[in-house]
Design a protein around this nucleic acid. Structure first.
Lengths: 347, 347
DNA sequence: ATGAAAGCGCTAACAG
DNA sequence: CTGTTAGCGCTTTCAT
């Protein structure tokens, strides 16, 4: 029941009007030219030295008549839709949803609306998003490149279409990418696991042809080297699913006699590992210890506390919009923006 | 690494073009009038009896030149933006995100794009969404009415703006609303809890001036009557937060000696109840039993298994879009659409 | 079977 | 200070 603060917008007028009111209508009502009305309503009356009296009359009348600019006419005239498109992998995942929220807020700040699209790993849907861009339904696109759609993005770039990538960069494509510094996340994870000295260090995650997993493993191994520690196991799964992770983790639990310190560098492998712990009757943190990647809702209510490396999702969306808007303004933009993750320790 | 099936779209042409190609360009290239090109490209060549040869030439050339319709010009001309707006309470909540996905899919089916907005309980943001509608940035709006913004929606309706409500209907507003049949959900919940005969039945949820909670409690009490069972406690919290629920539930656990069968008719009260169980060292299902409302991610990994009444979120989004599109086509639409929830039992 | 012309609502260059 | 005019790209009558 709380009421809201924030936008001190112009109030919505109570005046009906089946056919929307145009500038022309306001002008006729006042016996002025449509041009003058435009000058006033677009706030350029200073530039054109409209008399204060006229300005006042125009404002009043426009308000009274319930005038609203026709956004389509304005967009058409300016050849700008004032809309951006955000094409994310999976909206039902809080990671992507959080990004959409951050992006929407930033887009709003710049006067753009945001069209959010759900790609679901489908190259066809990504192509449709590019088509929207090509047809000027949106002025720019933020896209998390889908597997199998890299060529389309390369072509789009060749066509001069403005977009920025998030989370994953298409190899060899000279367009900006905003993502988390996964390697840095792995460093945080390993340091956390190394608090306890007696543990067998285990890494488990997805295939290395996915750059995300590649980066996470790289960061992990470099930090191992720096720490002078050997990993007991580096598990690179063919697919980063909960099922694969569970199976593999159960085997590891049988084999190892030392308590494990697991870095499950992906949400689903984390879930799989936790299921394995439960199946094996292990307890955290006595028998096993685990760090996952990406925040988990209600983590405190899980059987096993999971420390997580959290991406700053809102910031990714925000930065992506910032870059895109800058790009649309014709400025040069950074090729890559790496955002630092942070650790949320749970015991 | 899976490749995608689905849309058999026209391929994106590899032809660059800094200045986008217009119909005029295609026409000049062919020595035809722009009109003829339009006739062909909009698929109306039959109506205008364009010769098959010409049709063919136009298609080929347009493709070769990399022609794309300018969506803004088309929208302007048609006075339709071909975009709908979805204004949801909270995108970071999987409930609303799922709705957005369903809505986007359906909008797409009808040739509309979907602008998703995050209201965050803010009446100002809801007003902005209405402004977008008023300015024809979008053709229609789907909105989950924000507390404190009811008047704005009433005014918008008076202005003849097309929108549909989801999840909550503004009292006295004669516009369609799509939502879950909450009362039916409560029936499912109670029947589930009554499997075990020895339990003290407890209802806990938010304030009754929120229609959602009102409906849920109503359905619960009616089913109690039908079953001839008395509830041990009906807890109506002032605020449906995890904190309030936890405090209250701890008191209940102290007072009751029989095992509890709890219906926590809201996500946050569910979380609060679970925290209370943990604090009191209770075990599910021996000491307590719980049914919550709305799906919980990774529910199987929780300390306590929670059976949930799940809303068909995708269907809500889909139905809302369907109604809105129908409305925009000038047809009469249902005032209210109630969607049945279903139970996901977990032990 | 094809083309000429008008116009959707708005903005901006230019005139007075 | 205010008005005239042209034009953004497309669709649609209406001619031919």
């Amino acid at each position: 029941m709380k009421d809201s603060p924030e936008p001190p917008d112009q109030p919505i007028p109570a005046v009906p009007g089946l056919r929307p009111i145009r500038m022309k209508d306001v002008a006729e009502q006042l016996g002025l030219s449509q041009t003058t009305v435009s000058h006033v309503l677009t706030g350029k009356h200073a530039r054109y030295r409209i008399s204060a009296a006229t300005v006042e009359r125009v404002w009043k009348t426009a308000e009274k008549m319930g005038y609203r600019v026709n956004a389509m006419a304005r967009a058409f005239r300016a050849q700008k839709s004032y809309a951006l498109s955000l094409a994310v992998e999976d909206l039902s995942n809080p990671f992507w949803a959080g990004m959409a929220i951050g992006a929407e807020r930033e887009a709003d700040r710049h006067g753009y609306s945001l069209v959010v699209t759900h790609l679901a790993g489908n190259a066809g849907r990504q192509r449709r998003a590019l088509q929207f861009l090509h047809e000027s339904r949106v002025d720019g696109l933020i896209v998390s490149p889908v597997c199998g759609g890299d060529r389309d993005l390369v072509v789009a770039h060749a066509q001069g279409l403005p977009f920025v990538q998030i989370d994953r960069a298409v190899p060899g494509l000279d367009m900006p990418c905003v993502r988390t510094d996964h390697a840095a996340g792995s460093v945080l994870a390993l340091r956390h696991l190394l608090r306890r000295k007696d543990r067998a260090i285990v890494y488990i995650s997805g295939p290395l042809d996915v750059p995300t997993y590649r980066h996470r493993l790289d960061g992990f191994q470099e930090e191992l080297k720096r720490s002078g520690v050997e990993a007991a196991a580096i598990e690179v799964l063919k697919e980063a699913t909960a099922e694969h992770a569970e199976t593999r983790m159960i085997k590891l639990l049988e084999r190892q006699r030392r308590p494990l310190a697991v870095y499950a560098a992906n949400f689903f492998t984390t879930v799989g590992a936790l299921r394995a712990f439960r199946a094996a009757g292990k307890a955290v943190p006595d028998d096993v210890d685990i760090v996952g990647f990406d925040d988990i809702l209600m983590a405190d209510l899980l059987r096993y506390p999971v420390t997580t490396v959290d991406q700053n999702v809102g910031a990714i969306g925000r930065e992506a919009v910032r870059l895109l808007v800058k790009m649309l303004a014709g400025a040069e933009v950074e090729r890559a923006v790496l955002l630092p993750p942070h650790l949320t320790a749970r015991t």
